[in-house]
Design a protein around this nucleic acid. Sequence first.
DNA 1: GGGCGCAGAATTGTCGGACAGTCCGATTAT
DNA 2: ATAATCGGACTGTCCGACAATTCTGCGCCC
Lengths: 265, 265
Amino acid sequence: MSAASRNGGSGAAAVAVATFEPLDDHPAYRQIANLIERRIVDRVLRTGDPLPSETDLARQFGVNRSTVREAIRELETHGLLGRGRGEKRLRVTRPEPGRVSTGVSRALALHDVTYLELWEAMMAIEPAAAEYAAARRTPAQLEELMRTGTRFARAMGDTGKAVSAVVDFFTTVAAASGNQVLALSQAPVNLLLEPSLSEIIDRVPQASERILEAQRRIIAAIKARRSEVARSWMGKHIQDFRRGYELAFPLRSHSEGRRHEKTAR
Amino acid sequence: MSAASRNGGSGAAAVAVATFEPLDDHPAYRQIANLIERRIVDRVLRTGDPLPSETDLARQFGVNRSTVREAIRELETHGLLGRGRGEKRLRVTRPEPGRVSTGVSRALALHDVTYLELWEAMMAIEPAAAEYAAARRTPAQLEELMRTGTRFARAMGDTGKAVSAVVDFFTTVAAASGNQVLALSQAPVNLLLEPSLSEIIDRVPQASERILEAQRRIIAAIKARRSEVARSWMGKHIQDFRRGYELAFPLRSHSEGRRHEKTAR
DNA sequence: GGGCGCAGAATTGTCGGACAGTCCGATTAT
DNA sequence: ATAATCGGACTGTCCGACAATTCTGCGCCC
């Protein structure tokens, strides 16, 4: 799509006067990937449908099986194809927000992202998610939410479990918001949250209690369908994260040097 | 989902009692992909570095070239590897937010997502992005922003160009926010925005003018570094989108049947 | 001395064929 | 009917090969 945005960085001005498209090459495996993706997006192949066998596809497309395989990898990592546990045949899958960004965020995860950035994004997204979750959560989602709450409560002492419970808490809230876009936007946050959060929990003694308290309030609000309460408590909750981070890493200046601190690792 | 991500500790301590894990399979190509990804994330291979040749990798990993190739596809579509125009060798790439979700959002894009969902997500993210953009934009970013503004102004009449200019406007604001996480979260929104937006522009005559006006205000605020003004105008701007949509598709009930309307296409 | 062009080496994209391990469905034995 | 069994269909992986293109070192010309 926005392939054009690639070259801009270097020297020459971003001018496009008489330039010709670089005419990207079309390796067969990419073309085939696109063809299949098209079929999926156009619902010719619908979610859950099994894909023809590789040999079949190879025959149909008139290419070698190896080529088909490369195409399949592409779709598979995009989350459009997947295979149930111990199942041989591929089937069309509805990609879940959690898998979305794996590559990209993972790349950012341990290096370039400052905690402030993460915090700002959470501050924008999570309260909204909580608000909608309160309005639209299903009973099942509520229950799941309460489960993750319990899981966190039980995880006291085990940082790993606690962190994972917190992450799941946010994921679940986002899912309960009934808003797929919000859930999608929220997804990267979780991946990035993990490392810093575990530092906070390790280094700030009172963190766990505060998180627990906030989660309780938020869950209660969502249960009671009090949108505004849920939003506002989620806001406070996130703000707490910032305080927690400042307590965990007291030396750094947050207002200015944002380009420099990295998330912990 | 995050089951695998816990590899760091590698402690076998997290024992379940009587249940056995399904023991996920480790196809070689996936393992190899992970190994390479690890090297990249750990900066052993740094951005811009060329990757060894496929034959080399095959030798190093002790597998066949075909297998390596499948692994490479995986990383390639994750955006971690790429190759400059007409270049043979792959090199390590820093994936940009724009590419992130291509597969996933594309899948949602034309089907399940209601406009309301999209709007809610934008309402959460864009004002925040505008606020930070006002605070932190660089001169270059400001200039680019003004260019996209101009591009939209010039695109009057050509829906395609107009839509693309609007999308770029949001992308640029997000980039100017200096917050990579926010930019990442905002990325899916753009892909989803396109179809509905073009309907709006086509069907609501005054839409273009209102967008233009809002963009002007927002850009002015960002230029003047007035964070609050930028945020508030961006909020109004997004709200306009909702009104625009309601004008474009007057029959649908937005408050209730959210699970049912699809974005146009 | 430095830029240029060219032949050969290196590399990618694709192909054909092959084989073990395994999953699925049908058949047969208990 | 339930359980054990068998054969076929697939996937994961490997080998070997070949055209097309890119990369590279080297000699050549200005």
